[in-house]
Amino acid sequence: MQVHYDWRLARILNDDGVVIDEILWNSSKSISSVAKRLFELKKGRLSNEAKILFDRFDNVKIHPQGHLDDPNWPEYSNEERELFEKALINMAKLGVAESSGNIDRRMDMLVSSANEIRSAWTTSESRCIEWIGLFLTELNLEIKRKNIIETVAFCDTIQEVATSLETVSPLHTPAHNEWSTMKKHCESVIGLSNRMSDHEDSIRLLALEYIPSLSALLGPLGASKLVVLAGSRERLARMPSGSLQVLGADAAMAAHRNGAPPPKHGSVLFSMPQVSKSPRWVRGKVARYIAGKASIAVRIDHFDGKPWGESEIEEIFKEVKTIIDKFPNPPKRK
């Protein structure tokens, strides 16, 4: 015997396909009640009617797809079809609304937005420095770089900037509109810096809550970048540590597929001083070790383990130092 069911009814059929019993869903049908039922069925659960029939008889199987091979299964009436379609639209709208509760998506928005701001800041800051440098030809653009943009933003004329930065006055001065545009561009760079700080503060708060162990190990910004690169915390937690080690090294991985040596680390691990400040011949070893620990950390975070504290992190960094000290000299070339 087999139970056939959908959201409207359930039937039990004997081995010859004869209907033995049938229960209809008799409650008042609204769009939301149909949506609720369909939502349960989508999770692979049985309808109440199917459960009752299943319990009522012995040696009963459940049709794995509800009823699909049943030639006598009733088609939707016009009313049922309309209710079903409206319920699905409601379910889709609810699903879209629920996606804002997904922390992975919110982290992705924050990190991607921060990356875009950083990129915009780098381009605009370089442009502003070059622009001012065109007029203030004696100004040392390297030493004074950090002060130039703020100075322009707070001065009213280019001569005032020259005086403030202790350099000679320009031979040619920008026209009034040109100066005003330059000044506004510098102000926008300062605005971008402030927005960058706000973004990073938000990322830190979210990461410390969502991935505390990984944040303790890699820093909240690095940890959240890894989650975004992997696609979600779950995907990162299920990823082998070898894949985590090279996250962010897409170009090097593509080259590796064409015969180049494999990358030692991705961009996030390289941003850690334990990797980037180590001698190049131990970077791969350190990156591999940290990737292994990061892999454990994210699994602790995702599968509700006890978050790592300072003592665990200290121990890991002590081990990193041991690895670095173990290989003081570069390997001999073969």
């Binding site: 959908d6 959201w7 369909l38 069925l41 989508k42 999770k43 692979g44 794995p64 797809q65 509800g66 699909l68 079903f84 379609e85 699905l88 639209i89 379910m91 889709a92 699903g95 879209v96």
Partner: peptide, 15 residues
């Protein structure tokens, strides 16, 4: 009719 689901899952599609 829209359906927000994993298209690879028979269980999610069959209802």
């Amino acid at each position: 009719v829209p359906l927000l689901a994993d298209a690879r899952s028979i269980t999610e599609l069959s209802p």
